[in-house]
Design a binder for these strands. Sequence first.
DNA 1: CAGGTCATGTAAAGCGTTACATGATTTT
DNA 2: AAAATCATGTAACGCTTTACATGACCTG
Lengths: 198, 198
Amino acid sequence: MAAEPAPLPEPNPELCDGHDPELSPTARVILGMLTLGKRTGYDIKQLVDKSTRLFWAASYGQIYPELRRLEAQGLVRGEAVPTGGRARIEFELTAAGERALRDWLESDLEPFYELRDEGMLKLFFSDAAGPECAIATVRAMRARHERKLAQLQSIQEMADGGPPGPRLTLALGIGLTEGIINRCSRTELRLIADQERE
Amino acid sequence: MAAEPAPLPEPNPELCDGHDPELSPTARVILGMLTLGKRTGYDIKQLVDKSTRLFWAASYGQIYPELRRLEAQGLVRGEAVPTGGRARIEFELTAAGERALRDWLESDLEPFYELRDEGMLKLFFSDAAGPECAIATVRAMRARHERKLAQLQSIQEMADGGPPGPRLTLALGIGLTEGIINRCSRTELRLIADQERE
DNA sequence: CAGGTCATGTAAAGCGTTACATGATTTT
DNA sequence: AAAATCATGTAACGCTTTACATGACCTG
């Protein structure tokens, strides 16, 4: 079984210094968003919420400290650009930052993937409750993904004229979500049929 | 080693006011797994790794303290059942635990859902790297889900004669994963075609 | 008798959200 | 004048993983 307790004495890839101590999760979105131009922490958060949020979120409490760290590492450069009396710090990628971003994008390390789906968990244990439990759960799952789909479709025009990366990602996301909704619908119908057969 | 000298947290930190302070995330899997009968913390971890892990994980560092907390809340009951000189504590649901589990299963609060997919993020930013980046990324995504599918199929016999909840969940999971793989394949082929057209 | 599995647990660190606190500017 | 938005940031808390530590039992 390929379970967790596999403490292989893995040869440390970071031993030879002079190279990136690996980007932290939030650093990846930040650097990525900065390829679009100079942004403030606030801007980055808005962008994330409008684009990657459904598969990669970030909060202020994560973004601001991380920007500081990235600046200390020389991967971004911040410049105070106040608007009137309003504080404002615009960040942009440095050459090292661009390199780090490309290194990450081109690395073939197993990309991180994590799903936490309470609906599936409820379905799994649904035998411990009444027979409508499974149906309600699947219905809730479908509803959530339908909302998600609507949201994705609503930003499609925005991505339309843009670069291929976001366009592709959106198209793939829409496709995946449609597939999920279909599966949920089918499961739901089958459950209802099963229930009525009794 | 008998872990008695350890500073047990206050026996009654929870108010005994007849209202559930909502199950913590890990508590949900634990209570659910205990519907299958008496289990040790170790057993629960094995079960999670073999069944729900792909959409709901749990680690020892979470399970053991949570079992203590659940016992303090009166939702589970632990009994020492040593095998020879080997320490062993089997837990089972109490009536209150069963009630809490049902309450959770039947609650219609928005179920938690969170996805963190580095592959999608890479695809989103793939314009900042070479044109093979997007292809490699989608290929890696497909590969991961193919592995996941194989794993799901490998446990299908195990679930076959069992209760409907796990069976349904597995079937849905397999369907979803197949859909994802298909989308990835199509995206991949299209990217390759696009690249060759130049 | 070595190596794997069973079984317990703790400590530290990382990642992340939430809530708070502050104040300026813009919109209604 | 109120409300929303822009913009910064911190502190507290919660969840989870990782690494560690211990030891008994089982199998080859």
